[in-house]
Design a protein around this nucleic acid. Structure first.
Lengths: 158, 158
DNA sequence: CTAAGATAGTTTTATTTGCAACTATCTAAA
DNA sequence: TTTAGATAGTTGCAAATAAAACTATCTTAG
């Protein structure tokens, strides 16, 4: 029988690594700006795409449960970091976008977060880093994790 | 100003990938054997290391909170999958080890889990897979995630 | 030897998260 | 048009997790 070493088992290692990286990054947005992960994901999605998008869209492409997004949206609205626009074409949904304050926060967060990311990857050579990211992309595509905005409804919500 | 694309941001991608892989694997041990992630981690740690080890050790090297481990240990004891040995040298701690039944379950789980892992990595060439795992190791070492059993107490419990 | 601090493990509590039910709105088919 | 089903978003509840307080035991400095 083949043996199983937990510490060589990729799923376990990914889990552990992701947890570690998350807590390392959280100090940037949580400790400094009172944001949690869902809040940061919303901010980042809205900030990166210039235009407004729906909560559903954010939930889908960040693979975060819609109820989690809903709560985080409420919090961000309360802090005046995002705003809701009625959509007269479809009154079920709201388009969300950053307020000026929200955009300022988004911009303020980028440099330290990119710095952290670079730090984490600094143990790899340029070549290794490129290969690593490429492998990541392949696995994501293989598992159908692509963020594609045109998008089929992606397997709904697991 | 540099921009930040969430979908190219490695910490986010790791998080998303780990979550996806976790749920994919959970079907193996949860649906089939009623194990949750902490339970599986204990089983795997005890199974891989032939000898008995303490709850503290498992918590540290799997980076799982000690209260989570404590509860999972209670559950596994109740199911007769592991047993506790008094340590007369230090009566604060207990050494844990698999029962025969626990070992059988561990053995039964290995093949399907390794198959899943292989499936997930099947989109990479052999070369890419080796490089990917190597990069993972480097990052783990860089972030001080090494499982090292000799081990300094690793930053205690976050 | 004793007291102060450290450590293993448990338990209580609070937080977070996902699920499921619900409302409101839209779409499509009879 | 009416009705059945789908979809966006919210909310109540339950499960999982982490934090913190607690017990018991060990270690070490005086």
């Amino acid at each position: 029988m083949t043996d199983l070493d937990l510490f060589k088992f990729v799923p376990f290692r990914l889990n552990r690594l992701a947890a570690e990286v998350s807590t390392a990054l959280a100090t940037e947005y949580a400790d400094s700006y009172g944001l949690d992960i869902p809040g940061w994901r919303i901010l980042a999605t809205l900030g990166f795409r210039g235009d407004a998008c729906t909560a559903q869209y954010i939930a889908r492409c960040t693979r975060t449960h819609k109820s989690t997004i809903s709560r985080a949206v409420t919090a961000l609205l309360g802090r005046g970091l995002i705003e809701r626009l009625e959509n007269t074409d479809d009154r079920r949904e709201f388009r969300l976008r950053l307020t000026d304050e929200g955009r300022a926060l988004y911009r303020a967060l980028i440099p330290p977060l990119l710095r952290r990311e670079a730090e984490i990857l600094s143990c790899l050579t340029e070549r290794e880093r490129i290969d690593f990211v490429m492998a990541l992309s392949k696995i994501e595509r293989h598992l159908d994790l692509v963020q594609d905005l045109s998008s089929k409804p992606p397997a709904d919500e697991r």
